[in-house]
Every structure is written in structure tokens, then in C-alpha cells.
């Protein structure tokens, strides 16, 4: 039996040590996910906390099919979405006429030298709804149809928001790389 299965068994049996072990092993990765979906550290902290409580409460529903880490990640993402939805109950269905396609030239720029911490900083600066759509589409791999249901928006809005997010990210990445180069060149 794999070690993670033993830990899950222990958690299911109410073993506090195994619960803490599970948390210690996975909290860093899941906290990075929370930071990716939230605008600030405080909110990310809340998502992590609520998400882990859900994980412990629903551990008996995990069927050992597929990745356990993926299962926990989905819980964190869903928790982040719940928080987002609670703040945007009357989310506006945007007009899709103003979709701005990303600049093909800028999308071919050299991204070398960008570290994960830089990417996280950039993504956190996105407007909240763009950040949500970009994360769900580009990182998690959901379709616009799925995203439209998750965020209670139209598919067109999802596409529009993704497009705007990419434009903003490309610009910010570009300026970020420029600054880094300047710093490196003295």
C-alpha cells in the first residue's frame, strides 16, 4: 500500500497526526494554487483554510481513482470559485464585440528568465474576472462552456475575458522582462 493511501486511511480513522502530515505534505503546492486565484495573500490563506477543511470532510468520497493531488487541487479551485461567486452574484454578461485578440508579435517574445514567482506576481495583478477565466482555461484546462457554467457567464464573455487576460499578461510579461534585462545589464 502506498504511503499516501496509509495517510488517507489514518485521516479517515480520525488520526490527527496523519491529518497534519497530509497538510504538511501538500499545503505548499495548494497554497500556490490559492495565490494564483486570489488577489492577495489574505484571501489565499482563507481559501487554503476552507479548502483543507473540505478535504478532511470529504476524504471518504475520494475513490482512489486518479491523482489525489489533482482531487485536492480541484477542491481548492472550487473553493476559490465559491468565494468569487459570492462576491459577484450579479455578474454582468459582457458585450463580446470588443474582444481584443492578443498581439501575435508580442506572443512570440522570449519568455526566458521568468521565474514562477514572477509569473505569480503578474497573474495576481490581473483583474479578478480575467484572472479566473485565464486560470480555469489556460492552467486547469476547462473549456469555455464549462467556465461559463462555473462563473455564471456566457461562453462569449469567457472567450472575451480570456482574450483580454492574454493581452494584459503579454504586455506585463514584456515589461517585466524588460525591467529584468535592464537590472541585469546594470
Amino acid at each position: 500500500m502506498s504511503e499516501i493511501k496509509k495517510i488517507i486511511k489514518g485521516c479517515l480513522a480520525g488520526d490527527r497526526r496523519d491529518q497534519e502530515l497530509l497538510y504538511r505534505r501538500h499545503s505548499a503546492k495548494l497554497y500556490a494554487v490559492c495565490l494564483q486565484y486570489s488577489g492577495n495573500d489574505e484571501e489565499a490563506r482563507d481559501i487554503l483554510q476552507e479548502g483543507f477543511i473540505k478535504i478532511f470532510e470529504n476524504l471518504d468520497h475520494y475513490k482512489h481513482e486518479g491523482s489525489f493531488e489533482g482531487w485536492m487541487r480541484r477542491i481548492m479551485v472550487n473553493t476559490a470559485l465559491e468565494k468569487f461567486r459570492s462576491r459577484h452574484n450579479l455578474y454582468r454578461v459582457d458585450d463580446i464585440d470588443t474582444i481584443t485578440e492578443p498581439d501575435a508579435e508580442s506572443d512570440n517574445q522570449d519568455y526566458a528568465g521568468l521565474e514562477a514567482a514572477d509569473l505569480l506576481c503578474i497573474i495576481k495583478e490581473l483583474p479578478e474576472k480575467y484572472r479566473m477565466v485565464f486560470n480555469l482555461y489556460a492552467i486547469e484546462g476547462y473549456s469555455h462552456k464549462e467556465i461559463s457554467k462555473m462563473l455564471n457567464i456566457s461562453e462569449g464573455t469567457s472567450k472575451s475575458d480570456l482574450s483580454r487576460a492574454r493581452v494584459i499578461l503579454q504586455r506585463r510579461v514584456g515589461s517585466y522582462i524588460g525591467i529584468k534585462k535592464k537590472v541585469a545589464n546594470g
Partner: peptide, 11 residues
């Protein structure tokens, strides 16, 4: 899209 891959792999 290139920018998607950068963020997906980077994070």
C-alpha cells in the same frame, strides 16, 4: 497559445 503555456508550465 504561447502565453498560456508559459504560465501553465511555469506554475
Amino acid at each position: 497559445a504561447n502565453i498560456d503555456i508559459v504560465f501553465r508550465n511555469g506554475l
